[in-house]
Design a binder for these strands. Structure first.
Lengths: 228, 228
DNA sequence: CGGTTTTCCGTACAGTGCACGGAAAGAAGG
DNA sequence: CCTTCTTTCCGTGCACTGTACGGAAAACCG
């Protein structure tokens, strides 16, 4: 039961072909290649040239693999070099989060289902708390600010990924394309010019939305807390 | 098992036993009861007392069912009675969106994977464009504002649902509870007091984050545009 | 009545996650 | 050397999935 994995035990062990790390690495690669629904334990094992059930020696379930893979990708974000202005710091971190979710488009689908409890994700959120605490936020406002920022990024990239997944597949599938276009034409009449649903400037819109939230945060800061 | 239908039982001979609407209704009920992964075509057919393949007369695929069910729940949101202040209107609409996702916790998981193209969802987004246009926003700022608001709600409720799904299951499963708690204790040391990860005041935090975004939007409005 | 079309659905197939139990490769003790 | 024990590996099997196919019954049309 609770006998920890880290328990130091010079028991008899032989060199293992597989490992937790190798499985996670392969899982990320497979998810990148096949998408969130493309990961099966059989395919994962095949990629590692192992029998399917061998994986279960290192991993409890498929859910476990997904949890691990999800946390793994957040390792790709840089640690902050030196403390700078809170606003620049947050923009940098959140832009990097977004980039991670672009490299690994399956991430939003997984975060919508499971909590971000892994060490890497937690480290990230700790940085946010730290930055905004230093900027002068406390209490429920601090919590709300951090929650708003990460919710925004998750939600934004999720819909963004859907959109160009849709573009990708509808290039190949004329039927779907027609259907989607029909919906869009039908439903976005009056605001179509100035507010096209998918006008492509995702980067600019992301930063505008982010700026909007950061302005809201800034207005709640004590006068002194403009830099860290 | 298939007690030959052809004798007696003339109730079954009536023209349409199934319909798209009946299927969608049953799908929503099944998703509510079993969660996003609990919907299978067999279970859905059973709930309708029909053969599995009968569904495919009215529906193209399981994906189709999910698209339909997803759009269906957005019908639950009230149409606005009369035009009021844009801020109150948005708060009301977004609070209702959140309530929908609470009643149907599977919604965020689905929106993370598929676009909100259905008529009900589109009508909702059209209202947002309208309200903010009337308030004075135009161009990319309008698009960014609408995107920010819906991304925030989706993202917020997604993580919120995960959290009390986790609470629900860990009450029954002591192992998971221990694991989760361990992670939380281990990773939230310094900010644990003032910014507990799950301190339960979800309503307040949602509204604070929303207010924060609305402040950001308000700061981008032309001076005149305070009400519609 | 016959023919056509519409609704229903049983069967079958390829795929899934994973429980179970066994094989085999070493290490330790004799 | 042999035996025993631990640890890795994995083949088989089971319950379940989405859905292609084709057939049967019933309703409609002439």
């Amino acid at each position: 039961m609770p006998e920890s994995i880290w328990f130091r035990d010079d028991a008899r062990r032989r060199r293992p072909r597989l490992s937790r790390e190798r499985i996670v690495e392969a899982a990320v690669a497979l998810l990148d290649a096949e998408g969130a629904n493309g990961l099966s334990m059989r395919a994962l094992a095949a990629r590692l040239q192992a029998g399917t059930m061998s994986l279960y020696e290192y991993v409890q379930s498929k859910e476990d693999v997904l949890d691990l893979a999800l946390d793994e990708v957040f390792r790709e974000i840089d640690e902050p070099r030196e403390p700078g202005p809170w606003r620049d710091f947050l923009i940098s971190q959140l832009t990097q989060s977004r980039a991670v979710m672009h490299r690994h488009p399956w991430v939003p689908a997984l975060t919508a289902t499971r909590p971000l409890l892994g060490p890497n994700a937690q480290a990230r959120s700790r940085l946010f708390y730290g930055a905004l605490t230093d900027a002068g936020l406390t209490g429920p406002e601090l919590t709300a600010a951090v929650g708003t920022l990460s919710s925004y990024v998750n939600g934004y990239v999720a819909s963004e990924n859907i959109w160009w997944e849709r573009m990708r597949t509808s290039e190949a599938d004329a039927e779907i394309r027609a259907k989607v276009d029909g919906h869009l034409r039908e439903n976005s009449t009056e605001y179509a010019d100035q507010a096209q649903v998918g006008n492509g400037d995702f980067d600019g819109q992301f930063l505008m939305g982010l700026d909007l939230i950061l302005d809201g945060i800034a207005s709640r800061l004590p006068e002194t807390g403009l830099r860290t």
